[in-house]
Design a protein around this nucleic acid. Structure first.
Lengths: 195, 195
DNA sequence: CAGCTGACAGATTTCAATATCTGTCAGCTG
DNA sequence: CAGCTGACAGATATTGAAATCTGTCAGCTG
């Protein structure tokens, strides 16, 4: 809407795209809308992103990366691996649940985007299971956990806790006993890891 | 299509409805189609089912009950609870995976139906976790498992293995290493249950 | 007269015409 | 002349009128 003297960068386009997605939703957000929000012609947007799909993918990646970043600290700490694993899983659940609860419409939008960008989601999951692998390997090293193949075990832990981070289950995250369900699964998984 | 001299029963209507759903898919299957398939007027169908939604719900329940029935035997056997649990989970996974793989279109149809009938799905899940509770309680009684609250533990096991029975994950069930993923999660869960 | 039919009102879906969008590119502009 | 514009072709989405469907019920039929 507002023309600007600032140079048009990929970054500014991504911010405008997020805003347009927030306003119009994934079905109605168009490249023309993004250009209008930036006060440029839509041809200029295509100078920075080859296709609309590429633009949406970039937005999706940014969003997923922001989620991962908030967890890396927990994964990297030098503490008791069991407590670290519990904290990491709780942090992941809390982060996802907050995103889903705070702005359900925006969350639904990102649910559509992740559905469109399976590859980006795959990279995100690889990142997350990598963080888990680190915690589990540390646990195996200190003797707290049994794990012949930390990477495989990490993926099993990730799959076993899917109910509490997979956006497809977001509808269940406001059940009154969801915390108890989370505790029960984490307890089961942690017991399964112990040496 | 073919008129019949047989009396019109709920059973016959349900069979015809399954056939119509198979043929036309969930979006295009109409009550008029079902009536046509039975050679009656659609008014007659409404004599047995108050609404189209009720008819679809009945079809959904039948389908879910057929799945449950194939597992009750495994749950009720008098054998080593750990082996029984592994067999039960494997049987559930195999049954779902076969349904998804054999006729993907029909499976997609039932995915829509289960989405429409959350209540029926809830009853189905209650049934399945009930079967799991029995196995786990047996394990706790024989001393093979630790479980202060078998029902809660059963639900945790069900949630932890969701990737291998929740139809939402059907798209992942033809990954080459899906069996290894299943083994890893089941091993983790079984270790978590052991006393 | 129990069970079925078929006409009907209102809701939903389909379809085709119209409008908008995506992606390209020749040419304009600072 | 690097970066942007705006017109354009083909693809996609929107719209509103017509067709079909859902659910009801008075009356037919065996």
């Amino acid at each position: 809407m507002t023309p600007s003297t600032e140079t048009l960068t990929a970054e500014r386009i991504l911010e405008a795209t997020e805003e347009v997605l927030r306003r119009h939703g994934p079905a109605k957000a168009t490249v023309v809308d993004v250009a209008r929000a930036l006060g440029v012609s839509h041809g200029s947007v295509y100078r920075h992103f080859r296709t609309k799909a590429a633009l949406r993918e970039a937005v999706t990646k940014r969003w997923l990366d922001r989620t991962s970043a908030s967890l890396t600290d927990v994964a990297a700490e030098a503490r008791d691996p069991e407590a670290r694993l519990r904290d990491w899983l709780a942090a992941l659940f809390t982060a996802k649940r907050r995103k889903a609860g705070d702005d359900p419409e925006l969350f639904a939008t990102y649910l559509v985007l992740t559905g469109e960008n399976v590859e980006a989601v795959g990279a995100h999951i690889t990142d997350l299971t990598g963080q888990l692998t680190r915690i589990i390997r540390d646990g195996a090293d200190t003797g707290a956990f049994t794990a012949t193949d930390p990477a495989t075990t990490a993926r099993a832990v990730f799959h076993a806790t899917a109910r509490f981070h997979d956006p497809g289950y977001a509808q269940d995250w406001d059940q009154p006993d969801i915390e108890a369900q989370f505790e029960a699964v984490v307890d089961l998984v942690v017991r399964g890891l112990r040496a």
